[in-house]
């Protein structure tokens, strides 16, 4: 009895460690998205999944990849190569019209100092492509 309790503890804490990870929830969303998509392609298996991740999307690419590799078992992504493409933060100034790439999240225009800018990329979290093969 005592032994079984002892055995359960590591599993629970392992799960909690993952469950606490932001990326774990993102992975759940990814798997659900893929499961929905592959319904349209019966008899095909996913060999590669390409994601477009903005550097300021709020997800750590390294952690996301680790979490995906771990949780893809038993999902349609089980045999798929996971590729993450990172997208820089790019803004377009609506006053001077210039575009700029930013290293940190500061949306002011580096050319004219305007706050009136538009984010072109860097926030996205997309499943970009799925590569499918006959099973």
């Amino acid at each position: 009895m005592a032994q079984s309790v002892f055995l359960k503890i590591p599993q629970v804490s392992f799960f909690q460690e993952y469950a606490e990870m932001h990326e774990y929830f993102i992975v759940q969303n990814i798997l659900r998205t893929v499961e929905d998509l592959v319904k349209d392609y019966p008899g095909k298996k996913v060999t590669k999944a390409v994601f477009l991740i903005g550097k300021f999307s709020g997800v750590e690419p390294e952690l996301l990849k680790t979490a995906l590799e771990f949780f893809k078992k038993g999902s349609p992504l089980e045999d798929a190569e996971i590729v993450l493409e990172l997208e820089d933060l790019k803004i377009k100034c609506l006053d001077c019209g210039k575009e700029a790439t930013k290293e940190k999240w500061d949306i002011t225009c580096p050319f004219c100092g305007s706050f009136n800018t538009k984010v072109v990329s860097g926030e996205e979290m997309f499943l970009k492509t799925l590569e499918l093969e006959e099973e």
């Binding site: 998509l37 590669k48 997309f126 799925l130 499918l132």
Partner: peptide, 8 residues
């Protein structure tokens, strides 16, 4: 092989 652009 078939690459499907999904952009989801």
């Amino acid at each position: 092989k078939k690459a499907v652009e999904v952009f989801e």
